[in-house]
Simulated scan of single mutants.
Amino acid sequence: MTKGPELKTERLLLRRWRESDRAPFAAMNADPAVMEHFVSPLSEADSDAFVDRMEAAFERDGYGLWAVEVRETGDFVGFTGLSRVTFDAPFVPAVEVGWRLAHHAWGRGFAPEAARAALGFAFDTVGLAEVVSFTAPVNERSQAVMRKIGMRRDPDGDFDHPRVPEGHPIRPHVLWRIGVHDWRRA
């Protein structure tokens, strides 16, 4: 895995993926609490394939979903970053800010701290005009992060996620947005 853009916050380092991240990432993706708002937990092979896709995005786009580590300890705690939306929806083309953290890292403010760094990169380095985020309506924790980072809910943009099977309880998704002007005012 190659060197690429790193982002530092007061407590976190957002960096490219390392081979040593794969095992804790697979354990995180197998945790039912972490994966509560997804179709299902991921197998180790699916988790590894996800790492490969995240790394490919950095090579293709110059940004992606960074591995997040706690600077003080060096502990890997999940990912946060930017991802091109690759499915068909009315708001596409778009770039999403997203995160997934290990259960032991919840409630410490890491998700909004890392997401703010990713948004800063999106607007100040990549030059994006807008970033979106989305989740199932029942995922209140992620929506709380979206609020904390200055995003606004766009009820007109709510959609059925095309990669979630029809009839699945998490197929409906809510859309959140933040534009560069709102980011700069915040």
Results as ranks from 00 to 15, higher is better:
Gln143Pro: 06
Val131Ile: 01
Gly98Pro: 07
Met54Trp: 15
Ala89Glu: 03
Glu113Val: 07
Gly127Asn: 07
Met146Ala: 12
Gly78Thr: 00
Thr80Asp: 12
Phe58Asp: 01
Met54Arg: 14
Ser83Trp: 14
Arg171Phe: 08
Met54Asn: 14
Pro24Ala: 05
Leu65Gly: 07
Gly167Asn: 11
Leu14Ser: 02
Leu65Thr: 00
His161Ser: 08
Glu6Gln: 14
Gly64Phe: 07
Asp158Ala: 12
Asp61Cys: 11
Asp158Gly: 03
Glu6Lys: 14
Pro90Trp: 11
His37Asn: 14
Ala115Gly: 06
Gly4Trp: 13
Pro112Asn: 08
Ala57Asp: 15
Asp156Ala: 15
Val138Ser: 15
Lys8Tyr: 14
Met146Cys: 05
Pro90Arg: 13
Pro169Ala: 07
Asp31Phe: 09
Arg163Leu: 13
Glu6Ser: 14
Ala26Lys: 08
Leu128Asp: 02
Arg185Gly: 01
Val51Ala: 08
Val97Ser: 04
Pro24Asn: 11
Asp48Arg: 15
Glu59Gln: 14
Pro5Leu: 13
Gly98Lys: 04
Pro172Trp: 08
Phe79Asn: 02
Val164Gly: 06
Ile178Trp: 03
Thr9Gln: 07
His104Asp: 13
Glu55Asn: 10
Pro162Tyr: 05
Ala111Thr: 01
Ser20His: 09
His103Val: 14
Arg147Ile: 10
Val97Thr: 14
Glu55Asp: 15
Arg15Met: 08
Arg11Cys: 13
Leu82Pro: 05
Arg116Thr: 13
Gly98Met: 09
Ala111Arg: 01
Val34Glu: 04
Asn29Lys: 13
Thr135Gly: 07
Ala129Ser: 13
Ile170Pro: 01
Pro93Tyr: 06
Phe25Ile: 10
His161Arg: 08
Glu6Met: 12
Gly179Arg: 02
Asp124Ile: 00
Gly64Trp: 08
Leu101Ala: 04
Glu166Cys: 10
Gly78His: 05
Ala57Trp: 04
Phe123His: 00
Phe123Thr: 00
Gly120Cys: 11
Glu36Pro: 06
Glu140Phe: 13
Phe91Glu: 02
Ala122Cys: 04
Phe79Met: 14
Leu12Ala: 05
Ser20Glu: 15
Ala114Ile: 09
Phe121Trp: 10
Pro169Leu: 07
Leu65Val: 03
Glu44Asp: 12
Ala94Ile: 00
His37Trp: 15
Val92His: 09
Glu36Cys: 04
Ala117Gly: 04
Leu42Cys: 11
Arg84Trp: 05
Arg147Gly: 00
Pro93Leu: 06
Met146Pro: 01
